[in-house]
């Protein structure tokens, strides 16, 4: 995620909607992607994204620059997405919809690349669908968003060893699913 200047944040805190739009432009990709990966559903991802930005706007005035703005946004997004995901997973099975969620940059890709990307996206969603919300979140933050263990622990407000355990169990589950248990137990 690109850095946001302190001035932009301060302007948005004072109610400048253009400054808030700048924040949205920089952070919405992360929030929307995370929401989409957590729910596998476009409408749900839009609902979460909207909810996250309304929460950010409401609490922005209380942000005092003591922690990193990026981590602060991550935390709001992650909490909203995981709460939604837990609530929804109890009610219905996930529905995977990919058709119109792929990045616009894809238009420039060749048909073959686009096809490969789509195939990869389907694979990712099926992988993430195997995991529980906590494991899924750790995998997204680490393997897709590239956050360090420390950043994940800070974002989720958990111990760094909890992050390690969740990642280990997630990967064990995936390996067992795709290659059989013997690969781990051998």
């Amino acid at each position: 995620m690109q850095d946001i200047s302190k001035d932009t944040i301060a302007q948005a805190q004072m109610g400048d909607i253009d400054a808030f739009e700048k924040i949205y432009n920089v952070t919405s990709g992360f929030v929307y992607s995370l929401s989409l990966r957590m729910t596998s559903n476009k409408e749900d991802a839009e609902e979460i994204t909207q909810d996250v930005f309304l929460k950010i706007h409401k609490s922005l005035k209380r942000f005092e620059f003591r922690s990193s703005f990026k981590t602060w946004v991550y935390r709001i997004a992650v909490n909203t997405a995981i709460n939604f995901s837990r609530r929804v997973s109890k009610k219905k099975a996930d529905t995977v919809k990919y058709d119109d969620t792929v990045d616009t940059a894809e238009e420039k890709d060749t048909m073959r690349d686009a096809h490969e990307k789509e195939h990869n996206e389907k694979l990712i969603q099926s992988m993430l669908g195997i995991l529980n919300p906590d494991q899924r979140l750790c995998m997204i933050l680490r393997n897709i968003e590239g956050l360090s263990y420390e950043e994940i622990a800070e974002t989720l407000k958990v111990n760094i060893n909890t992050v390690r355990t969740r990642l280990k169990r997630a990967r064990e589950k995936l390996i067992s699913h795709f290659h059989g248990k013997e690969v781990i137990c051998r």
Binding site: I17, F20, E21, Y24, S28, G29, F30, V31, Y32, S33, L36, A45, E46, T49, Q50, F53, L54, H57, T101, V102, D103, T104, A105, E106, K117, N120, E121, L123, I124, M127, M139, N143, I144, R171, L174, I175, F178, H179, V183
Partner: peptide
């Protein structure tokens, strides 16, 4: 197995962008 099945596919995942109308909805709600 880890590299092939987990690390590489996830590394190559694309970043999704929200639809343009979403910002307008948020702005209106604010």
């Amino acid at each position: 197995a880890l590299k092939k099945t987990i690390i590489e596919p996830l590394k190559d995942s694309s970043r999704h962008t929200p639809p343009a109308y979403l910002w307008n909805n948020i702005k209106e709600s604010i």
